[in-house]
């Protein structure tokens, strides 16, 4: 139980880094969807049979089923937070590209190419 903790932490952090380095890949996006489906299936199963989380906790080595749920919740939340951060940044990059292109083309449209007044 003591040994499993640092191992789990390493796994979670490693998975997070790996997932977001590869977040643009099609396989990754598909993987996230499959993970979402599995999570839903597990949630339904856990509602139908509340003993399931305890059984799983026993397998993993966690004392209580509720603790296991809490851990999973923390991991999912961390994923969501980091995903949000990067999604936001990607969007911001696109916004910058669009605004910059518009600004430069407007400036050229208004007063010509930079330096053009000199040479022509």
């Amino acid at each position: 139980m003591i040994v499993i903790k640092p191992l789990l932490i390493l796994c979670v952090v490693g998975l997070l880094v790996w997932a977001f380095r590869n977040r643009a890949r099609v396989g990754m996006r598909a993987g996230m969807k499959v993970a979402g489906l599995l999570l839903t299936a597990f949630a339904i199963a856990a509602i139908v049979d509340p003993g399931l989380t305890q059984a799983l906790a026993d397998v993993v080595g966690v004392t209580r089923g509720t603790d296991l749920l809490l851990y999973v919740l923390v991991v999912v939340f961390a994923f969501a937070a980091v995903a949000g951060y990067f999604r936001f940044r990607d969007l911001e990059n696109r916004l910058v590209d669009v605004v910059r292109a518009q600004a430069i083309s407007e400036a050229i449209h208004a007063e010509g190419m930079p330096g053009a007044d000199r040479g022509l």
Binding site: L95, V96, V99, R100, Q102, A103, I104, E106, A107, E111, P114
Partner: peptide, 17 residues
């Protein structure tokens, strides 16, 4: 000469523009 960002993007973005 003036190049105008339609919205505020930040110092780095402005320098790049």
């Amino acid at each position: 000469r003036v190049v105008r960002h339609a919205v505020n993007l930040g110092a780095g973005a402005a320098l790049q523009t």
